[in-house]
Amino acid sequence: MIEARHITKKFKRVLAVDDLGFDLKIGGSLALWGSNGAGKTTLIRCLLGVFPCKGTVRINGIDVRRKGKQARAQIGYVPQELAFHDDAKLGSAMRFFANLRGVELAQAARSLHVVGLNGHESKRVRDLSGGMKQRLALAIALIADPPIIVLDEPTSNLDSSGRGEVVDTLLRLREQGKTLIFASHRPDEVITLADRVLVMEQGRLVQQTTPEALWPSRSSVRSVRLFIEQGDEHQAAEILREGGFAVNHGNSGLTVAIEQHRKAEPMNHLAARGITVRDFELLRDVHDDDEPEIRVRKEQISEVLR
């Protein structure tokens, strides 16, 4: 059971997380959905007790702020990108974390086997590919077999096959009863892994819902990015949400989840309220997306130019 109440984290003058709270039962899986800068990463760090922040977080009844060490013992953490001593060899890194978690080395070996990194023990961390690093991070998180796994955009630096494997592993873990909290901006991951979604925007919890509610028809979900006059963005997001759309308000416009054959709907909805959409781009279907998003935008631009 994870209970978060009134979590507030301020960096100098910026409110990174603003009075956010939620509950998550054992075995549950929670996605943090939001664009970059929405506060997902900060929230995760608050949950881990890495940042001191206002409010309370209880992990299985343990107050993270007062007994951070005990609380973190319950959690395996996978960062966006593994940052560990580059000089260290994979084997000695595993040994270190096994020691740190107070488990036998055999368990480290088993954990490496789980992520398919067995046999690479003598490689140095710096020589690992992005995908291998991420799998190492997962292996480390799994060493002590903790009941809760917290992941901060675990697939953002991976290609599609790497992503698929990580998602696969997480899915299995979920089936085994692990509690998952993960940040993501990929609808497919959220749909596959989460049973609840916290939609975050500028540090606030704007919506607590289910993936099904956000993307009613998961097979045909697409995202469209709308570019609106700067001043109107906020209002546009409100209007769209009132209209039942899943909206993500980030630095580069609004991203709206839509169904396959209704791409124009959000624009029409806005136009009806008197808000002009300057430009839009269609983000490809995430399921078979093995290209970086940059490519998508280039295509879009060439289309517009033509």
Binding site: H113, V114, G116, D145, P147, E165, T169, Q176, G177
Partner: peptide
């Protein structure tokens, strides 16, 4: 890339 294998991860009941 080898497939991930979850045999080593413990069963939910003894967790």
């Amino acid at each position: 890339m080898s497939t991930m294998n979850l045999n080593g991860v413990s069963r939910p009941e003894n967790q």
